[in-house]
Design a protein around this nucleic acid. Structure first.
Lengths: 254, 254
DNA sequence: CCTAACTCCGTATGCCTTACGGTATTTGGT
DNA sequence: ACCAAATACCGTAAGGCATACGGAGTTAGG
């Protein structure tokens, strides 16, 4: 990756504030960058990131493979642009209520987004591109807890904490759904295949606590693991912990 | 994936309890499954999962490409076996101290493991293979909070919470380290390249809170983001939240 | 001693990204 | 009005990947 490529990708990311840099000579491009991104997002939504290829994006637009490279420098950069693009979809509603309610909205927005675009969880961003929608969202997320009593440092750490947990939780849920839907094997069917083999392989009595806890979880949930409920459980614990931190602070003006 | 493949992979995972199923005719295999896994782990450690290929595993053993397929059914299954293999490396020390201290050990073990084998974070396990080391670890993790006052359901949710958060936190840290080390671009250098471009592209004054918080974080940390510290921050909040749940429980015998 | 079973491997298929060069098209400059 | 530069689009090819298939050599059970 060259220095100029950084410049080019950042310029593409922020194209709405400066306009797409395009020379006036030569033929006009048949599509806009936005249309290429929408095609890419559609492919990724339908087939996931491993099956995402430049050829499929080109096919969807009626272009030939190599023409895509006149719009974006490479596959990785295209994906980076797609990420910032979908981050602009949900909009940023004005904050209301307590910081708990606000943070719930923040977390729920991420959770929903990961379910709308599961491939976001498969993106390996070695380099975090700083785009307009990501920047807007981070500002909005910080605004959710502005004035709640956190220090600046804690504000960053809190948003990081919520984001990290939500990401991991959504990852587990999406993986479970993918296993159930894509392979046509439900949770119960999967266990039906695995259980007899495991019965034969596992040393009997080796997992007393797991067995007990697993049975309890299986009876309580409608599935082996209810990710939605685990998500709310974790969120509630984290909120209680943040509450405790704010409440026990020496100089706390509310 | 056929039904028989499930059987074969599970049998390979639990090979230590039943032995590797091998017919007696024909030539003996030059290597053991363990040696193949060690070769695979070495390749993944050195080059990461995207660059992990069957050819490189074969080269490392002095075998030709296709011979690997007589040891493991496919690339995905090999990776699944590698995952369970590394989960057996650290051992499971006996639990001591309070549940807070125990859960800290549990989280720290995962955190360290992700840093020892960063490719674990890149594994896309559409199907969670149930292997001996993973099962042993889950049992050990549950034992850490056995008798602390959690219900069976909460035990599972708590371990999930700690695991989810640790995974996401480690992912952020590993990504940052990779960016710094692998590309030879330090945190400061990356900003030195990006900042001038962003100064030109970003609408001035658009990000007041981000600017203030980012400055605070930059001054407090030695880097832009101190993942180790964010990790401890999140863990402390979660522990406080769990503490609050246990303390406010109606029938709480301690 | 024969043959079934097994290991190892050569070849081939069909994906993928992307470098490079060619051709057609558009427009600024003269 | 015309030329040359710039640009979009695309064909080809190189080099990578997983893995299906079949063949050659090797071992041991009957």
């Amino acid at each position: 990756m060259e220095n100029g490529d950084v410049d080019r990708t950042l310029t593409l990311l922020w194209r709405r504030t400066l306009g797409v840099p395009q020379g006036s000579r030569g033929p006009k491009q048949r599509f806009s960058v936005d249309e290429v991104l929408q095609a890419g997002i559609a492919v990724a939504d339908e087939e996931g990131l491993p099956a995402f290829s430049m050829r499929k994006v080109a096919d969807r637009l009626g272009l030939k493979l190599m023409s895509i490279y006149t719009y974006v420098p490479s596959r990785d950069e295209l994906i980076g642009l797609m990420v910032d693009e979908v981050m602009g979809e949900p909009g940023l509603p004005p904050h209301e209520g307590t910081w708990r309610e606000r943070l719930t909205v923040v977390a729920r927005q991420m959770w929903d987004e990961f379910h709308r675009h599961p491939w976001l969880l498969q993106v390996e961003q070695s380099r975090p591109w700083i785009g307009p929608n990501g920047s807007d969202r981070y500002e909005w997320q910080l605004a959710a807890i502005e004035g709640a009593g956190f220090t600046d440092l804690e504000m960053d750490q809190t948003i990081t904490l919520i984001g990290d947990f939500t990401t991991a939780s959504a990852r587990a849920d999406v993986a479970a759904r993918r296993m159930a839907e894509q392979s046509g094997i439900s949770d119960a069917e999967w266990w039906a295949v695995n259980a007899p083999v495991l019965d034969r392989l596992m040393p009997p009595g080796a997992y007393p606590i797991s067995g007990r806890v697993g049975t309890a979880a299986g009876e309580e949930y409608n599935a082996v693991r209810d990710s939605e409920r685990s998500f709310r459980f974790g969120l509630d614990r984290i909120f209680d912990g943040l509450d405790h931190m704010l409440a026990t602070r020496p100089s706390n003006d509310g």
